[in-house]
Amino acid sequence: MTMILSVAVVAALGLGLGWLLGLASQWLGATTDPVVERLTEALPGSQCGQCGYPGCGQAAIALSKGEAPVTLCPPGGRVVAEKLAEILGTTFDPGNLPDRGPLLARVRTDYCIGCSRCIKSCPTDAILGATKQLHVVLEEACIGCGACAEVCPTGGIDLEGIPVTLRNWRWHKPGVGHA
C-alpha cells in the first residue's frame, strides 16, 4: 500500500512540475528573433565579399548552419567575431584570428592611372576621384576590406595598418605581450 502511494505521489509530483515547467517556458521564455537576422545585424553589412560569400546575408546563413567560423569577417575583426560567437552560443578563440588590427587602403600616387575601377569596387564609397584623375581614400569611410587593391590594374593600392599615435594609443593588457 505504502509503496503504491509513494509511487503515486512521485508520479503526480513529476507530472505537476513538468506541467509547470512547460507553462513557464511558454510564458517566460525569451522570444528570440531568428538567428540569421541577428547574425546579419551583427555583420558590417558592407557586402565586401572578403569572407568568400557574396554578401553579409549569405555569410549569416552559412554561419547559422555552422559552415563558416565566427572569425570569417576580416573587416569586423575581434569585436564582430565575439558578437557572432555570442549569438551562436559558441566560444570564440581569439587565437584563430590573425591579429593585425584594422587596415586602411592607401593609393600610391605614382602608380594610380585614374582608371576608377577601385571606385566602383568599393563597398562603402570610400574612394574619391574621377576618371583620369588621382584617386584618394577617405580614411573615415574605409573599412580595409581590400576589394580595391584586388581590382587595381597597377597594384597601386596598399593596405596599411593604422599608425599608433598619442590619440589612439592604448594600454596593453598586463602580463600579455609587450614583455
Binding site: 558590417p44 553589412g45 558592407s46 573587416p75 569585436v79 594600454w171 598586463p174
Partner: peptide
Amino acid sequence: NYAKGEIAARREAQRKAEETRKLAE
C-alpha cells in the same frame, strides 16, 4: 587602464561599423 582603452576602441569600432552600414546602404 587596459579595459577602459579597450572599451573606447570597441565603441570606436562600433561607430565605424554603423557608419559602414550606412555607406553600404
